Simulated scan of single mutants.
Amino acid sequence: MNIISYSREQIQEELAHARTKHRETNDHIRLIFAPTRINHDNFERACDIYSHIEPENYDTVVVIESFPKVLDKKLPMPSNKFFETPLGRVPVNDFLRNELCDEDDDFYINDEGYSRDMSLYQQLMILQCVCSDFSVLSIQIADNDPAIIKELAYVLEEVLASHNALLVFCCDLENSRKHEFQKVKEIVESENESRLMNYLNSGESKITGTTSFIAGVLVAFAWDLKLSFLNGEYEEYDGSLLTGYADRESIIRNV
């Protein structure tokens, strides 16, 4: 069952259950990695990662996802004034959208990649149960060119450093691919950007949303954040091994 069919009460109940595990939110989280598609298999895990954040810290949530095809506009942002889910409307941060366009030529307000099937709508269903008042911005990565990914990460790092924004990078690595997960962890722990980009270029990655994941790791490097992945108790679960968050205090670990 896709999260779009979940009720507000179902999502809030799972979020409350997740909070009982760690008992407090984290004031220092700047970005998270969330499943591209949230369904029965990974719903508990997705709620767990969102339950760590302190919602009052964020005015805006920026959702970054990979587009499966190459588009003429490399970093399109839908022109919507708001996005609507079964739980209501969320306004778009038009000021930030224009600021990104002014900052770099690869950002465009463009609807070529827009659809109701975007991961954005999956994330909004949980965000609407976590945050009481926020705006949103959707960015798609429509090219696998490492230069585009680096540029996206650089602009996000520069522009959003002064904003009260949460970055959500949408990506998945199937739970059966634990060997690749360990390799990814080693690359992240080494903080070696060259190894990260070589991993992208090799074609070996089985990550869905590889470009989104790598952009998120590059931002974490730039902001000197540490990554924590929700592994451990989810060892036998289906769903993404990459679910995690980055903050200023934690060390790289499984929780």
Rank of each mutant, 00 (worst) to 15 (best):
E14V: 00
V184L: 14
V70C: 06
N39D: 15
P146Q: 05
L156Y: 13
N254Y: 07
D72V: 09
S190G: 13
Q122K: 10
I53Y: 03
M118G: 07
H28Y: 01
G244M: 07
K183L: 11
D41T: 11
K183S: 10
Y108R: 04
E151F: 00
L127S: 01
I126R: 05
A165Q: 05
L137V: 14
V92M: 13
R8V: 14
L225D: 01
E103T: 11
I252Q: 08
V188E: 12
F107M: 01
H52Y: 05
L87I: 04
V184K: 06
P146C: 05
K150C: 03
S51H: 03
V219N: 07
D72N: 09
Y237Q: 08
I29D: 04
K73W: 00
R19Q: 05
P55R: 04
E193T: 14
R37T: 13
S138T: 06
D145F: 04
S66R: 15
N80E: 10
K81V: 08
I32G: 00
A161G: 14
F229E: 09
I3V: 15
L225T: 05
A34R: 03
V90W: 03
H28T: 05
D172N: 15
D72C: 02
I139Y: 09
I29R: 02
I149N: 04
P86F: 03
I11T: 10
E24I: 03
L75A: 06
K150I: 00
A153I: 04
L230Y: 13
D145R: 13
D238I: 04
E191A: 15
F181W: 01
V159R: 15
I148F: 02
G113E: 01
I32E: 02
L166P: 00
R248Y: 13
R195V: 08
